[in-house]
Amino acid sequence: MAAGGDHGSPDSYRSPLASRYASPEMCFVFSDRYKFRTWRQLWLWLAEAEQTLGLPITDEQIQEMKSNLENIDFKMAAEEEKRLRHDVMAHVHTFGHCCPKAAGIIHLGATSCYVGDNTDLIILRNALDLLLPKLARVISRLADFAKERASLPTLGFTHFQPAQLTTVGKRCCLWIQDLCMDLQNLKRVRDDLRFRGVKGTTGTQASFLQLFEGDDHKVEQLDKMVTEKAGFKRAFIITGQTYTRKVDIEVLSVLASLGASVHKICTDIRLLANLKEMEEPFEKQQIGSSAMPYKRNPMRSERCCSLARHLMTLVMDPLQTASVQWFERTLDDSANRRICLAEAFLTADTILNTLQNISEGLVVYPKVIERRIRQELPFMATENIIMAMVKAGGSRQDCHEKIRVLSQQAASVVKQEGGDNDLIERIQVDAYFSPIHSQLDHLLDPSSFTGRASQQVQRFLEEEVYPLLKPYESVMKVKAELCL
């Protein structure tokens, strides 16, 4: 049975990233139509530049190519590739079939990587351009969430054990800070992308030097003109047959890092959902379990974690691919890159769409948070109580021993009897502590235990987050809708 299948058929496997999760716009960027249309555009740009620099290419040939950029006979191309065992030459023939007058000058002087690699770089750039505003929107939604809850005390956790208090907004800023680093890295790697350009079979530009009869300047002009037509500021000066596969490492490393950030955020949300302090959106008709109707599973956060793990592992592909590119190139890269580049971007696209949807509907339960604080705060307040007693004339050592005994009794009630923490009640009825009984409410005010959390939130948002989001103001209103 021949390899390949009808990918629109229910009898043929289709990647869930495309069929179930990723956005239509990201799927289109990695589609065959987008790819092969870009090949034709690159052939047109090459012909236009070659004509401008004096090669015998007519206006009629150029116009014929322009008129057929979208006229792609995919069936013919597939048949040609089956016959020739070469995808680029299959599309040269297919393009030439609908451009008979231009057929002889299509791909003039070029090698397969002229269309293959340059198209990949265009796709990487455009895919990054799709991700950047999506990530900015996630940051914006979380920034709104953090600002609104900047002063809401909550129990902090280290080692997932109760620690000092923080605020809900401050905790959210930990998430935002990681995503801001990801946004900066995505922008950097996007701006650092260079075009492969017009380089020939081993990167020496020998074929173009021959076409222009040894004119170095025209060869350099050709490279520059096509690079500018493709919208790049610069091209690699040095290439082998391909652009260095280190570029793929750079791009997928940034995406993998984004995956790590999203995994951490969504894990926190899942843990908070278990504590009943916070939940992701839950639709009115949504079913959490087929057997347990009360369940409210954090399905979206779980999906993000599941896909983020996949995204983090994909960076190993370009690392290994770059390491086995012998001399000017081997074909070890080809099949692998067809999979890992598309999957990385479709996965990143999915987790950003999902995280935006989550961040637009996060639900906080202040009463649950308050109750958990009441359970733990008495123990945390013991040092403040000791200091207040010393100020009232008591002995630190005597007070410490009193607190120690009462704390152990209260802990026994919590752990052995399943009761509430009654340390404060014990202190309130103990005559030894009568000098500070009137101060206990103040000493137990949760806001006095959150330090500068709310001020940190305000400063972080104003100095770091809002300036970073400013270039994306025009796209901030787009909502994230999930079908599944």
Rank of each mutant, 00 (worst) to 15 (best):
A2I: 13
A2V: 06
G8N: 11
S9N: 13
S9D: 12
S9L: 13
D11G: 07
D11V: 13
S12G: 14
S12A: 13
S12V: 14
Y13M: 15
S15A: 15
P16G: 08
P16K: 12
P16S: 15
A22I: 12
S23K: 15
P24Y: 12
E25S: 14
S31M: 02
S31Q: 05
R40V: 06
W43P: 03
L46Y: 09
A47W: 02
A47Y: 06
A49V: 10
E50Y: 05
E50H: 15
L53G: 04
G54V: 02
G54A: 10
P56S: 05
I57E: 01
D59C: 15
Q61K: 08
Q61V: 15
I62S: 02
Q63G: 10
E64F: 15
S67D: 04
S67I: 14
S67Y: 13
S67E: 08
S67N: 12
N68D: 09
E70A: 06
E70V: 12
N71Q: 08
F74Y: 08
F74M: 15
K75M: 13
K75V: 07
E79R: 14
E80W: 04
E81Q: 09
K82S: 09
K82A: 08
L84I: 06
H86S: 00
H86D: 01
H86I: 03
V88K: 05
M89K: 00
V92P: 00
H93N: 14
H93K: 10
T94R: 07
F95K: 02
C99I: 07
A103D: 13
A103T: 12
G104K: 13
H107M: 10
L108S: 11
L108H: 07
G109T: 08
G109Q: 02
G109V: 02
A110S: 06
T111N: 07
V115S: 07
G116L: 11
G116T: 13
L121P: 00
L121Q: 09
L121I: 03
L121N: 12
I122Y: 07
I122M: 09
I123W: 03
L124V: 08
N126Y: 14
L128Y: 15
D129R: 05
A136L: 14
R137C: 11
R141E: 11
A143E: 01
A143R: 09
D144W: 11
D144I: 12
A146T: 07
K147S: 11
K147M: 11
E148G: 09
R149V: 08
R149G: 09
A150W: 08
L152C: 05
T154N: 08
T158Q: 02
H159R: 00
F160V: 08
Q161H: 02
P162A: 06
A163V: 02
V168E: 06
K170G: 05
K170L: 09
C172E: 02
C172M: 10
C172S: 09
C173H: 09
Q177W: 15
Q177T: 14
D182L: 03
L183T: 11
L186Q: 06
L186H: 11
K187Q: 08
V189F: 10
V189H: 09
D191W: 05
D191R: 11
D191F: 03
L193C: 11
R196N: 07
G197I: 02
G200R: 01
A206T: 07
S207E: 01
L209V: 12
L209K: 07
Q210N: 05
Q210L: 11
L211C: 04
F212T: 10
F212S: 04
G214D: 15
D216F: 04
H217V: 12
H217I: 12
K218A: 09
V219I: 06
D223R: 01
V226Q: 04
A230R: 05
A230G: 06
G231M: 09
K233S: 08
F236P: 03
T239W: 01
G240P: 01
T242K: 05
T242Y: 02
Y243K: 00
Y243I: 02
T244I: 02
V247K: 14
V247R: 02
D248T: 04
D248M: 01
I249E: 02
E250F: 07
L252M: 09
A256M: 09
G259C: 15
A260E: 14
S261L: 04
H263I: 09
I265A: 12
T267A: 08
I269C: 01
R270S: 03
R270M: 00
R270Y: 03
L271Y: 00
L271W: 02
A273H: 13
A273K: 00
N274R: 03
E277I: 03
E277M: 05
M278Q: 05
E279W: 06
E280S: 01
P281R: 07
P281S: 07
E283T: 15
K284T: 10
K284W: 12
K284Y: 15
I287K: 01
G288A: 06
S290M: 04
A291D: 04
M292Y: 00
M292H: 03
P293W: 01
Y294T: 00
K295W: 01
K295Q: 02
N297D: 04
S301Y: 01
E302Y: 06
R303Q: 12
C305W: 01
S306H: 00
A308H: 06
R309S: 09
L311T: 04
M312R: 01
M312S: 05
T313E: 01
L314A: 08
M316Y: 04
D317C: 08
L319Y: 15
L319P: 00
L319R: 00
Q320E: 04
A322M: 12
Q325M: 08
Q325D: 03
W326D: 02
W326R: 03
F327P: 02
E328I: 03
T330M: 02
S334Q: 15
N336C: 09
R337S: 02
R337E: 00
R338F: 01
L341D: 05
E343S: 07
E343A: 03
F345D: 02
F345K: 01
T347S: 14
D349K: 02
T350W: 06
T350D: 10
I351D: 03
I351Q: 02
L352N: 07
N353G: 11
N353H: 07
T354A: 13
Q356G: 07
S359V: 14
V363K: 03
P366E: 12
K367F: 01
V368E: 02
I369Y: 04
I373L: 11
R374M: 06
E376H: 14
L377F: 02
L377G: 03
P378G: 05
N384P: 07
I385D: 06
M387T: 11
A388Q: 01
A388E: 08
V390G: 07
G393V: 08
G394D: 09
G394F: 12
S395M: 11
R396A: 07
Q397N: 15
Q397L: 06
C399V: 09
C399M: 10
K402W: 05
L406Q: 06
S407L: 02
Q409F: 02
A410E: 02
A411N: 13
A411F: 00
S412K: 11
S412G: 14
K415S: 06
K415M: 10
K415A: 06
E417S: 08
G418A: 03
G419N: 14
D420E: 11
D422M: 15
L423V: 05
L423Y: 08
E425R: 12
R426Q: 13
V429M: 13
D430V: 10
Y432V: 12
Y432C: 11
F433D: 08
F433R: 03
P435M: 04
I436F: 03
H437Y: 13
S438E: 13
L440C: 13
D441G: 11
H442F: 15
L443F: 07
D445K: 06
P446Y: 03
S447F: 13
S448C: 15
F449D: 13
G451P: 06
G451I: 05
S454F: 15
S454N: 05
S454M: 07
Q456G: 08
Q458W: 14
R459E: 12
E462Q: 11
E462L: 13
E464M: 07
Y466M: 15
Y466H: 15
P467A: 13
P467K: 10
L468N: 15
L469Q: 06
P471I: 12
S474D: 15
V475E: 14
V475W: 10
A480V: 15
A480E: 11
E481I: 11
E481P: 13
L482Q: 13
L484Q: 15
